[in-house]
């Protein structure tokens, strides 16, 4: 039982990271119909900003984290202006290609400017603790709690505020939202900023676990994208459930069946969901739109 609980805790921790990055994917799919293949690089950039402020400049974490989030939000707007905006009327494919190009550019830009050495970002909380025979890693705990708080915050903003209603209206039907006087362009830019900030937070959270490297975004992004499909393409609850399910499935599968096939379990889950429920767990909304 202790082994199961240990794996469950770890799976939820790593799954929370997939969920956060996946959430960033979903928001952009809904608001701008963009599949952003640079979402993983948002995480990498967020982590490097933390390294610069916390490690290099010695800024305390409680100041460095908000700085990283704000800078990532600003970067999201810049990203929208350069990568999305000029191609927004040319269909989905050019924008997707543009995000792939941006992903390659960002990885190589960081490699060229900061160098290839992976960096160590100390954990937000120093030590873990034991509950019975289960070791609770403080960083994984922080990841789970912060992800839960962000999901709650997002729910409150989207469901209980005027801004949230405007964002939802934009994501559901841009033309109708525009006719109702909602500044659609502003809402799309806000979504890019929010998505980049989410990616940045994911990077900051995962950095002490995975180290800060140019490749860290790619490691997480592929799984987050799979989580997005498992949960239902474009579904917010789906992104969260898909991410958590993927994290738990691969951790359990690796431990109980085979470690070398760890990645295979994640994608076996993906195939299973696609076979049984092709639209994903929460995929009705996309089916309605189609």
């Amino acid at each position: 039982m202790a082994l199961f609980l240990q794996l469950l805790f770890t799976g939820l921790g790593i799954g929370s990271i997939y969920a956060l990055v996946s959430l960033g994917f979903v928001l952009l799919i809904r608001a701008a119909s963009v599949v952003n293949f640079a979402q993983g690089e948002f995480s990498m950039l967020g982590a490097y900003i933390m390294v610069i402020f916390a490690n290099d400049l010695g800024v305390p974490y409680f100041i460095a984290i908000p700085i990283a989030v704000i800078l990532m939000a600003a970067f999201g707007i810049l990203f929208a202006g350069v990568v999305y905006w000029p191609l927004r009327h040319r269909g989905q494919l050019p924008v997707i290609i543009s995000t792939i190009g941006a992903s390659i550019f960002l990885a190589n830009f960081v490699l060229a400017t900061y160098g290839p050495s992976p960096q160590v970002l100390p954990p937000i909380f120093d030590n873990g603790f034991d509950i019975g025979e289960v070791y609770i890693d403080s960083q994984y705990l922080a990841i789970i709690v912060i992800t839960a708080l962000l999901v709650l915050l997002q729910y409150l903003v989207f469901e209980k505020t005027l801004l949230g209603k405007k964002l939802q209206a934009t994501s559901q039907d841009k033309e109708m939202a525009s006719l109702l006087g909602i500044p659609v362009a502003l809402m799309v830019l806000f979504t890019f900023a929010y998505s980049a900030a989410l990616g940045g937070i994911a990077g900051v959270l995962v950095a002490p676990v995975l180290f800060v490297s140019v490749q860290m975004g790619a490691v997480v992004a592929l799984k987050a994208f799979a989580a997005n499909i498992i949960g239902g393409f474009g579904s917010i609850p789906g992104a969260i459930i898909g991410g958590l399910a993927l994290g738990v499935a691969e951790t359990m599968g690796a431990s109980y069946i085979s470690v070398p096939y760890k990645d295979a379990f994640a994608f076996a889950l993906l195939l299973l969901v696609l076979l049984v429920r092709p639209q994903g767990i929460f995929g009705e909304r996309i089916a309605e739109k189609a």
Binding site: Q6, L7, T10, I14, I17, V206, V209, L210, Q215, V219, V220, K223, T251, A254, S255, V259, P260, K262, D263
Partner: peptide, 10 residues
């Protein structure tokens, strides 16, 4: 184990 893993708990 396969290279480039995010987690080595198992």
């Amino acid at each position: 184990y396969t290279n480039q893993q995010a987690d080595f708990t198992p």
